[in-house]
Amino acid sequence: MTTLQILIPTFALIVAGFLLRRHAGFNPGFWSDLEWLIYYILFPALLFGSLARHPLEIQSAAGMIYTGFIFMLAGMALGYLGQRWMRLGQREFASAFQCAFRFNSYIGFAILGGLYGAEGVAVFAILTGFMVPLANVGAVWALARHGNHGLLRELARNPLVLSTFAGLAWSLSGWPLPTMIDTTLGFLGEAALPLGLIAVGAGLQLAGVGRHAPAIAYLTLVKLIAVPAISVGAAMLFGISGVYLAAALVLAALPTASSAYILAVRMGGDGQIVAALIATHTLAAAITLPLWLFLIQ
C-alpha cells in the first residue's frame, strides 16, 4: 500500500471522531468512558501483545532505538529551552512541555501496520517499548515538579509504562503466549487502533489556540519539523533502513499523544493548552507526515 492509501483512512477516522462527538448525540460521559477503555485496557493490550508474542531482536533494532533516544532527548531539550520564548506560566509550561516530544502511537501503529503488516507493528512496538517510558518520565517529571506529585508513583501507575515493561519482560523470557491469551490480546489490540483514532478526533479542541499562539507555534515546529529532521540525521548516522527507518521517522513525526491531555488534567496541569496543542499538531500532521514519509518511499 502507498503512503496516501494508509494516511487517508487514518485521518478519515480522526475526522469521523470529530464529527461524531459534535453531531451524533452521544452523552459526554460516553467519550470519557471510551478514552478510559482505550487508555487502560485496549492500548495496553496492544502494547503487551505486540511485544510479548515476538522475540526481541535487539541487535537488529539497536540503531533504531539509539535514533529514538536521540530525537526524543532533543525534543525534550528544545521544549525546555523554549520556555523563555513561549510566554507561559509555570503551570502552563509544565503541561505544554510534553507536547515537544510525546507521540500518538495510535496513528503510528496504523501507519506501520498498513505499510509493513505484522512486521511493521512488531518493530514499532519495540521502538515504542523503549520510547514510552522515556516520554512518560519527561512528561511526569515536569508535571510532578509543578504539582508536587511523586515521579516514581506516577510512573508505577501508568498503564502504558506497565504494559510496555511487562511485554518486554515476557519477550525476553522466551515463553510463548498461551493461545487463548494471545487471541484475546489480539482482539483487544485490533479494537485499540480504530477506536483510538476516533477518540483522537473526538478530543480535538481548538479553544485557546489564539491565547497561546507563540507557545503553540514553537512547539508545533519542534514536534513536527525539528524532531523528525533530527531523526533523519540520527538514522543516517546509524545506517538504519527499511522498516526500522520507517518506524523511527514515523514516531518522530507523529503529533502529540491524546493521553497528554489526560495526564495534564489528572496531575493538576492546564488541560486547555494541551488540548489546543494536540488539535494543532494533529491537523498540521496531516500535511507534514506525508512529506516526511515520502523520504522513505
Rank of each mutant, 00 (worst) to 15 (best):
L197A: 12
L160K: 01
A279E: 04
R84V: 12
I58N: 02
L134F: 03
A135H: 08
G82F: 07
W292Y: 06
L291G: 10
E119G: 01
S259T: 11
Y106M: 11
H23A: 11
W36P: 00
E92V: 00
T67P: 00
L295H: 06
H54Q: 14
L185S: 02
A24N: 05
R145I: 02
Y106L: 07
G201R: 08
T282I: 01
R21S: 03
I296L: 09
L143N: 14
A135K: 03
I230T: 02
A144G: 14
Q98D: 08
L51K: 01
L224S: 02
G79S: 09
L37E: 13
G113Y: 07
L88I: 06
L221C: 11
P290G: 08
I8L: 14
A52Q: 00
P178N: 05
G196K: 13
A16T: 13
Y66T: 01
L37Q: 15
I198D: 03
L115R: 07
P214M: 10
T282S: 06
Y40K: 07
W36H: 11
F43V: 15
G117R: 06
G138M: 07
R266F: 00
S60E: 15
V123W: 13
S32G: 15
A264L: 04
S60R: 15
L143K: 15
L4S: 13
Y261P: 14
A252K: 12
A264W: 06
L73P: 10
D182H: 05
L197F: 11
M180E: 12
L204P: 00
A12K: 05
I287R: 00
G189F: 08
R84Q: 10
R145L: 05
L20A: 14
H281N: 04
V140N: 13
A253F: 08
A286I: 09
V209I: 12
H149L: 09
K223L: 12
H212T: 08
G208K: 03
N27H: 11
G269T: 10
L34I: 05
G129N: 05
L51W: 02
L42P: 15
V137I: 12
Y39A: 10
F124N: 02
I278E: 05
I198G: 05
P228T: 05
A125Y: 04
N158C: 09
L46I: 04
L4Y: 07
L19W: 09
R22N: 10
T256M: 09
V222S: 03
I225K: 01
I65A: 06
Y106T: 05
S171E: 12
G25W: 08
A275T: 14
Y66L: 04
I111M: 06
P159H: 04
M180Y: 11
G17P: 15
S258H: 00
A135T: 06
F71D: 02
A16S: 13
Q83C: 07
I278A: 05
G63W: 04
N104Q: 10
L37K: 15
L193K: 12
A52N: 00
F294D: 13
L291N: 11
R157K: 15
I38Y: 14
L88C: 09
G167E: 06
T288Q: 04
V250P: 01
G210C: 03
L88E: 07
D182V: 01
M1H: 03
G233H: 02
L251R: 11
P133T: 06
R87H: 14
M1V: 08
S50A: 12
G196W: 11
M64G: 07
